[in-house]
Design a protein around this nucleic acid. Structure first.
Lengths: 180, 180
DNA sequence: TCGCTCTATGTCTGAACTGACATAGTGCCG
DNA sequence: CGGCACTATGTCAGTTCAGACATAGAGCGA
């Protein structure tokens, strides 16, 4: 059984054959919005997927000490990915540093704390604008069988998340600094 | 510099002196809503905090091969925690398995996918009910200087998050299974 | 033609973390 | 008084991951 990152790689390769280097790029954007990895991790996991027969590669001439390897899914890889998609996700342990800071915020100066949340709010507002721009690029909602359906659905989730987060920041600022 | 878990431990100890065992319990609930750890990790980190002089303990007679150690913050520990609280959080890499599955969902049967989201929606609705019950236990919003302020603020965030997530699940179900 | 940036591969160390293993006192119920 | 659940400590092996290190061709501009 591949790791979750392994499935992230399979998901990216399901759309197009790619080199490890290109996978690193997509793991940065757009996949990086919900799953990230460094190229060192990607190369390690590609070796495992290769050993499990879920991907194969064609060597091509190219830069680098070892040339270029274009990876693609095997039929087994595609089947493994399809089976995994509909299985319930493993419960991830929540890890949210900002909420942890909030939990201990009674020790800090409220005005300084409000400053922190104002900076966070700005970040979220920027992302909302960015995501809304991306959504404008879609001509309507893609069909569930369309390869871009996942992109749209993930974008919807991200936009909703950023709005929830921005709302929380505004509430916090109002509580910490009622004069503002 | 302690790890984030180290600060989570300091945050818990800022409210009350505790044993490692009791810390394990609070890291499960309520701190576990936004930062989790196993007792093995907590014991390891307590050793580091001890070496850094941020916590100290009083040995007491009690069960276990080594008796009982009640940990409490040192003044340095309290100062380190207070400084950390208002510093911007390190950017955590987003890791969301359900969104990743969504990204690859164009390969799967929409009806099966809708089933997955119906199960997720149920979980979120349960948590919303649970959090609303917890919020009813508060007599109004605590003041930012009140030690329970963080609990309330984290609860607000959690409730807002669960509602956002539930909304997304409902949208997904509507897209995947328009007959429902 | 020198150097820079981009493409492209990989290894290695250390930190954080999980899950299993190990030990032992205390209090309670039958 | 036997056994179980709870309190309480800790170690260890293995996984995941980030960040640093290492190598090298290709293309471009000064």
């Amino acid at each position: 059984m591949p790791s979750t990152l392994g499935f992230a790689i399979l998901a990216a390769l399901a759309k197009d054959a790619r080199t490890g280097y290109e996978l690193t790029a997509v793991m940065n954007r757009p996949v990086g919005y919900f799953w990230t990895a460094r190229h060192s991790q990607i190369h390690t996991d590609l070796q495992k997927l290769l050993a499990d027969g879920l991907v194969r590669f064609e060597a091509e001439h190219g830069p680098g000490p070892q040339g270029k390897k274009v990876y693609h899914l095997t039929p087994e890889g595609r089947a493994a990915l399809r089976d995994w998609v509909t299985e319930p996700p493993r419960a991830r342990t929540e890890r949210d540093e900002l909420v942890l800071k909030t939990y201990a915020s009674w020790l800090a100066d409220p005005a300084e704390m409000a400053e922190l949340f104002r900076a966070q709010l700005l970040l979220h507002e920027e992302r909302i604008a960015q995501y809304e721009g991306q959504r404008a690029g879609f001509a309507g909602v893609p069909d569930p069988g369309d390869p871009t359906f996942g992109n749209y659905a993930a974008l919807w989730c991200g936009l909703s998340y950023e709005r929830h987060r921005a709302e929380w920041c505004r509430w916090m600022i109002g509580r910490l600094d009622p004069s503002a």
